[in-house]
Nucleic acid binder design. Structure first.
Lengths: 119, 119
DNA sequence: TTTACTGCTATACTTTAGTATACTACTATA
DNA sequence: TATAGTAGTATACTAAAGTATAGCAGTAAA
């Protein structure tokens, strides 16, 4: 009985649901995405600013992740024609609103820690 | 100004916040964690049930992920002394409540898709 | 005695993610 | 002409995640 219901539920599970979760996971998973987003969260930053905020990241990774985040519509890259040239990265609205997801994750995480510790 | 505030914020950012997010990410990231949790979500399941639900997973990965999810307090493993032996996996309360996070991720994901498509 | 069902484990491999280190192109200042 | 600041790229590597394929241990029915 229960098994059949479960199967039905699984089959009803709309693809949109799964896709959305994957989209969300893609923009926050990996070693550096959250630190980078966190660095830009409170104001636009330049490449070297972010590097200074995250001392252990290599320029290769920072460059790669910034490109990916830009492609995914999380941030915007703006080049200023100054000398030396300056490039600013700032969050899009989507990039900003990921904090809502993160807040839920904090909430669950804290709750879960308590549950695991108290058994 | 803005830069200094940002730095302050980053420095105030409590470690608990970061740890909780990492805890949460750890239990849902990887290729198979969500499919497995999804399979058990609507009722306890046996090893082979889950395998049938997720045809492409190898027993090695299923076994490995189930162990990890159990260690992380997401599910409980129960052995029944029948013949042949039966092992049932069911979600803990924490395991169940991860759906709250997933729901937020769906919400954001859908919103984000719209934002990216409409530019 | 063979077959089949349960729930896995072992070994070797490939693929993806991340690291290390050095270097580039442009330009203004010393 | 050398140096320093901007924002990166190139190449080669290591480590982590995941795959492929085969097999094990227990039991019970054919």
């Amino acid at each position: 009985m229960e098994k059949i219901d479960a199967l039905k539920e699984v089959k009803n599970c709309p693809i949109q649901y799964v896709l959305s979760i994957n989209d969300t996971l893609n923009v926050i998973s990996g070693k550096w995405k959250l630190p980078i987003l966190g660095s830009i969260l409170f104001g636009k930053k330049r490449f070297t600013d972010i590097q200074r905020n995250i001392p252990k990241i290599t320029p290769r990774m920072l460059s790669k992740e910034l490109k990916e985040l830009e492609l995914n519509g999380m941030l915007v890259r703006t080049v200023h024609d100054s000398t030396p040239v300056m490039v600013e990265y700032s969050l899009t609205d989507s990039g900003q609103s990921i904090t809502e997801v993160l807040d839920k994750m904090v909430e669950w995480g804290i709750q879960h820690r308590k549950a695991v510790i108290t058994g």
